[in-house]
Amino acid sequence: MAAITRLIGAILLEQNDEWAVQRSRYMTLESVAPLGDDPLTSLPPVAAA
């Protein structure tokens, strides 16, 4: 039983490390927000259908 507990604990720790690394690969809302203030990067308004 102790071996199973250690194995599951090791797997969970490894998965947690993967999640931590993946989170830093994507842009956060805070890093994208300043782009919305630049008229060159904004999209034109959508015409009503």
Score class of each variant (00 low, 15 high):
15 Q>A: 11
33 A>R: 15
42 S>L: 04
10 A>Q: 06
4 I>R: 14
19 W>F: 12
13 L>V: 01
38 D>E: 03
35 L>V: 01
22 Q>S: 11
20 A>I: 15
25 R>Q: 12
22 Q>G: 08
9 G>Y: 02
20 A>L: 15
26 Y>D: 08
41 T>S: 12
40 L>W: 08
8 I>H: 03
30 E>S: 05
15 Q>P: 00
19 W>P: 03
38 D>C: 05
33 A>Q: 08
45 P>F: 01
29 L>A: 13
37 D>F: 05
27 M>W: 10
43 L>E: 08
11 I>E: 03
46 V>Q: 11
43 L>R: 03
11 I>K: 02
36 G>L: 12
48 A>F: 06
43 L>G: 00
43 L>A: 10
16 N>F: 07
34 P>K: 01
49 A>F: 05
12 L>Y: 01
12 L>T: 05
10 A>W: 03
47 A>W: 00
36 G>F: 08
3 A>I: 13
39 P>Y: 00
41 T>L: 13
21 V>A: 09
11 I>T: 10
24 S>F: 04
48 A>C: 05
9 G>E: 11
31 S>H: 04
6 R>H: 02
32 V>D: 00
9 G>C: 02
23 R>T: 04
5 T>D: 11
19 W>I: 10
23 R>S: 09
48 A>I: 06
30 E>Y: 02
4 I>C: 10
14 E>K: 09
5 T>V: 14
29 L>M: 08
17 D>K: 15
20 A>H: 10
3 A>Q: 14
19 W>A: 15
14 E>N: 14
6 R>L: 07
26 Y>N: 08
47 A>V: 13
41 T>P: 01
19 W>M: 15
20 A>N: 12
13 L>H: 02
7 L>K: 10
17 D>P: 00
27 M>E: 09
18 E>R: 13
31 S>A: 15
40 L>C: 04
44 P>T: 00
22 Q>A: 13
8 I>D: 02
28 T>S: 11
48 A>L: 07
18 E>Q: 14
3 A>C: 07
34 P>F: 00
25 R>N: 07
49 A>D: 14
26 Y>P: 00
17 D>R: 15
25 R>S: 04
39 P>R: 01
15 Q>W: 07
49 A>R: 13
15 Q>V: 09
19 W>C: 05
3 A>M: 10
13 L>M: 04
40 L>A: 10
7 L>D: 15
34 P>A: 00
21 V>C: 05
4 I>E: 10
18 E>H: 12
3 A>S: 13
2 A>S: 07
13 L>P: 00
15 Q>C: 05
13 L>Y: 01
1 M>P: 06
7 L>R: 11
2 A>Q: 12
10 A>S: 12
35 L>F: 02
24 S>T: 13
48 A>S: 14
44 P>E: 04
36 G>D: 01
20 A>P: 00
25 R>K: 11
47 A>R: 08
37 D>R: 12
18 E>F: 12
22 Q>N: 11
17 D>N: 09
39 P>Q: 00
35 L>Q: 06
40 L>T: 14
13 L>D: 02
45 P>A: 06
18 E>K: 10
37 D>C: 04
10 A>F: 06
43 L>Y: 03
33 A>S: 06
12 L>Q: 04
40 L>S: 15
4 I>V: 07
26 Y>R: 12
